[in-house]
């Protein structure tokens, strides 16, 4: 009897979690893939099998293509600028100061505040008429911007918000990476009369590059899923200029009831995320190897 329990104990222990995962993650993914090969509008009783038609349709669908383009532009700029700025900030902050704790807290808080609040705060800052940003631009004699109201600037405004939210977190991670570099490396370099730039290129950068790779992939995964800021700030507009992949899925699934299209777009996002995740785990296993 107790031997029975002994053998089944591990299964009992993992069962609750596994049930949740299968029910709410694994099965839905399977269902989404299934739907991507069908045409369905939520209401009609039968789902018509259409093979790859949904994907073919998507490839000619201007709105989808626009959202794909926007997603890539968003990801490229937000991840790129965040990483570079965070690296510079980290190098600048990473010295023992009395304010370190305060800076840490200040820099970090955007990361834990709801994106809803952040989006609203920035909508206010970016208001073309009474927004602080335009007020600031005027102060310095610069031309004002339409920010979210213009198709030319809306996506970049969203990118600005994304950078603002993630830069603090990124900086902290890089600082942690910098602090894990053993000081004796720099001492040895100093004895070898290495210049500051050489020290950075030969010691700092190689030592933190795993951290950077890691961050970049995490940021990529995050920015492919951007939704909240767009839904609140622009709802994809003006003129589709801020429509992204996830927002497209949401709109087509939820507003226009074209589940086949929405699911196909979902499958494409799934593929992108899978590639990034595999890369992430590959790097992780490599890093474990180094230690």
């Amino acid at each position: 009897m107790s031997r029975w329990l002994e053998r089944f104990r591990p299964y009992l222990m993992v069962a609750p979690a596994i049930i949740v995962f299968v029910l709410f993650f694994i099965y839905p993914i399977g269902y989404m893939i299934y739907l991507s090969f069908h045409e369905w509008d939520f209401i009609s009783p039968d789902k018509q099998f259409v093979g790859l038609d949904n994907f073919a349709g998507l490839s000619e669908h201007p709105e989808f293509l626009k959202s794909l383009e926007n997603t890539f532009v968003f990801t490229f700029f937000s991840v790129g600028i965040t990483t570079v700025l965070a690296l510079l900030l980290a190098l600048w902050i990473n010295r023992p100061t009395r304010f370190y704790g305060f800076v840490q807290g200040a820099v970090f808080s955007p990361h834990i505040i709801s994106l809803v609040s952040i989006a609203m705060l920035w909508m206010w800052l970016m208001d073309p008429q009474y927004g602080l940003l335009n007020w600031g631009l005027e102060m310095f004699g610069l031309p004002q911007s339409q920010w979210l109201a213009s198709p030319e600037t809306a996506l970049y405004s969203i990118i600005l918000v994304a950078i603002w939210k993630s830069i603090g977190f990124n900086t902290l991670i890089i600082i942690a990476g910098l602090q894990s570099i053993p000081p004796h490396l720099y001492e040895a370099a100093a004895l070898d009369q290495s210049s500051r730039f050489t020290s950075f290129a030969k010691i700092t950068f190689p030592m933190i590059s795993p951290t950077l790779f890691f961050l970049i992939i995490m940021n990529l995964i995050g920015s492919f899923q951007v939704f909240e800021t767009i839904d609140i700030m622009t709802q994809g507009g003006p003129l589709q200029s801020t429509n992204t992949l996830v927002y497209y899925i949401y709109e087509y699934g939820f507003r226009f009831f074209q589940l086949g299209y929405a699911s196909s777009a979902g499958v494409i996002l799934l593929i992108v995320l899978s590639i990034l995740t595999v890369l992430y785990f590959f790097l992780m296993s490599k890093r474990v190897h180094y230690q």
């Binding site: 995962f21 993650f25 839905p28 993914i29 949401y250 699934g253 929405a262 996002l269 799934l270 995320l273």
Partner: peptide
């Protein structure tokens, strides 16, 4: 299976769920 779940964002599964 648990680790796969880690990479699935809610934005992907909301329709089926």
């Amino acid at each position: 299976l648990t680790m796969i779940t880690l990479m699935i964002p809610t934005q992907l599964i909301f329709l089926p769920v």
